[in-house]
Computed example of a mutant assay.
Amino acid sequence: MGKFIVMGQQEDLHTQHMLEQLKLKTDDVYHFQSHDFPSKAQLSLDLISEQGHAITTVCGTKILLNDIEAVYWRNFSGVSDEATKNNVGSIESLSAYDSMATIRTWMQLGNDTQWFNSWAAYQYHQEKPRQLLKVKQLGCNIPKTYIGNELTEIKKAFLTFKKAIFKPVYGGAYTEWLTSGHLVKEHAEAALRKSPITVQEYIPGTNIRTFVIDEKVVSVEVNSESVDFREDNLSSMHCVNTPIHIQSQALAITKALRLKWTAIDWRKSPDGHYYFLEANPSPMFLATEERTELPITKWLVEAMLNSRH
């Protein structure tokens, strides 16, 4: 058995949970926080012998990259000099970009390390229009969507949809209702000069979250009055059976977006149609386990331990 890395912020609950659970199965588990590189951790890419690619953790343990069987990637916390990247052209800025390029190379090295999940999967999530287009090409339903910063088109979408929501194109904020107050010309044009937005038709119905792990497909219904159930700490969950074609779509989405595991969010309309919202490459799952008793941790740990078999 090879070595395993849990990559995430030290204080993150899921990072600590996966470290603890993997250590119950093997002694070769190590923590890596991207923010420790290059100030406290080392990363070597040896293009001379191509055998010396290695990472050295904060505690001083050197690990050959080819010996890493799997990485659970919970979150990315930048690099040591991340805050200096905005100072374009400075030595500090160049250092930060050098560090990021080195880490990204490791994450896309193409060796046998299995990433849960990969940089490619992460990019699909951060470029949500691309993710939506890819999923639509698979034949899945998606809500009617406008992405951009043309106020006339946003108003047209707002008037066309019975109810409309808006959210960031990249992520990092919750979904909100779109109201006429948001479309006041002076305010809206100022905001749209800063960034585009995603406007979607609101699909009435229920929230369904489908976890896909190592060919296992399980779904929960999330009952919440909030437009974005992620901010509702009082939401309730229970396991549900989804139609065979939705399970097949979930597997196809996972493969197309180059995911090893994921949580896919759907809206199920009153007439039983499922609409894809997003596929998360690093979903939170502890609350789901607690409320439904689904053994997500067990499945994820097993998938990592058996990733090369």
Results as ranks from 00 to 15, higher is better:
185 K>W: 05
205 G>A: 11
215 E>M: 09
229 F>C: 01
232 D>R: 04
225 E>L: 13
185 K>G: 00
191 A>T: 07
176 E>T: 07
233 N>M: 11
177 W>V: 09
251 L>G: 00
172 G>F: 07
179 T>E: 14
219 S>V: 05
279 A>K: 03
207 N>R: 08
183 L>C: 10
220 V>C: 14
282 S>L: 01
196 P>I: 00
222 V>I: 15
271 D>F: 04
181 G>A: 05
206 T>M: 04
222 V>N: 10
169 V>S: 03
204 P>H: 07
173 A>Y: 10
164 A>Q: 00
272 G>P: 11
173 A>C: 08
210 T>N: 05
227 V>W: 05
186 E>V: 07
276 F>P: 02
247 Q>N: 14
255 K>G: 04
268 K>Y: 01
273 H>W: 00
204 P>F: 00
216 K>A: 04
172 G>Q: 05
244 I>P: 13
280 N>Y: 06
213 I>T: 05
257 L>T: 11
185 K>A: 01
185 K>I: 05
227 V>E: 04
259 L>R: 05
235 S>V: 12
279 A>R: 07
193 R>A: 14
184 V>H: 09
255 K>L: 06
161 F>H: 13
234 L>K: 15
196 P>C: 01
167 K>S: 04
224 S>K: 06
204 P>I: 00
237 M>N: 15
272 G>L: 06
234 L>M: 08
177 W>R: 01
194 K>M: 11
266 W>H: 01
179 T>A: 08
252 A>H: 06
271 D>W: 03
234 L>V: 13
254 T>W: 04
